[in-house]
Amino acid sequence: MGVRPVTRSDIPALSRALAEAFDDDPVMCWMFPHDAKRPTGMARLFAAETRYHHLAGGGAELAETPDGTIVGGALWDPPDRWKQSSYDSLRSLPAVMRALGGRLRVGAEVSHALESAHPTEPHWYLSTIGTSSAGRGGGYGKALLNSRLSRCDAEGAPAYLESSKHANIPYYERFGFEVTGEIVIPNGGPTLWKMWRDPR
């Protein structure tokens, strides 16, 4: 298997892999409640976020099989660059609107809830990580996490993520993350768990 930085040409395939990985994710199901529309909407949203934010920070990585098939990815933001700039938000707005359609307000509520609860101490932020069914169980998630966490340790930098599934908490704990709190999406939305990792 291989882990490497994402390029602009990788974005469509990466976005489809992430959309497949998040098809049963509680937050994504809240934002995209229609099963038939969810895959396309999520792929468009991941593409917009990668293209207009994560790619510029140098923290977007993908996992691929020996034949070059993209089966997963991790979207990291470097210290003090986790929040999208106003300029990039404006540039990405048409693509985000196309992705969310009538659920734009719900997407804004999710973003606001996550931003309001975000730690202020400088850290590497793992916004998204996932593998498609073709990569699941193959160690790709572990490889993606270790790729960036080894850099965090070398830099002496903490790392932070939000787990949208309670069942995934033990997995992240194996990499040194600890639960520090909960985030509840308003208006009956799901709960996420804040997880922090000090460098080793």
Rank of each mutant, 00 (worst) to 15 (best):
R44C: 09
H123R: 09
V110G: 04
F177H: 09
R103Q: 15
A17V: 08
L126N: 06
S127F: 04
G135S: 03
Y172V: 04
P39E: 09
Q84Y: 04
A157L: 05
T128K: 05
L114Y: 14
K83I: 13
D25T: 09
P12V: 00
H34I: 13
V110F: 10
K165W: 02
H112W: 07
D25V: 06
A154R: 12
G2Q: 15
S133F: 09
I183S: 00
A159P: 03
S111G: 12
W193V: 00
E20H: 11
G58I: 12
S92Y: 02
V110Y: 05
R91Q: 13
F32S: 03
A19Q: 06
G72K: 12
L192A: 06
P122A: 11
A21L: 05
S9K: 14
E49P: 01
M195C: 11
W196I: 06
V179S: 13
S133A: 15
M31D: 02
W193R: 08
E109G: 00
D153Y: 11
M42K: 04
A13Q: 12
G41L: 10
T65A: 11
L144H: 04
N187H: 13
S92V: 03
L100I: 04
S127L: 00
A157E: 09
S89Y: 01
A48K: 06
I185M: 00
W76C: 05
L62R: 07
M31Y: 05
Y160P: 00
G72F: 08
I169K: 08
S9R: 13
Y160C: 01
D77H: 10
L93C: 06
T65S: 12
R51S: 13
L55E: 08
L62F: 10
G41I: 02
Y160A: 01
S92Q: 12
L104A: 13
R136D: 07
L149E: 02
A167K: 14
M31W: 03
R44L: 15
A154T: 11
G141T: 06
F32Y: 15
K142V: 14
V184G: 00
S85W: 07
L100P: 03
S86H: 10
A43V: 05
P79W: 07
D35Q: 14
M195V: 08
V3F: 04
R51P: 01
I185Y: 02
R16M: 03
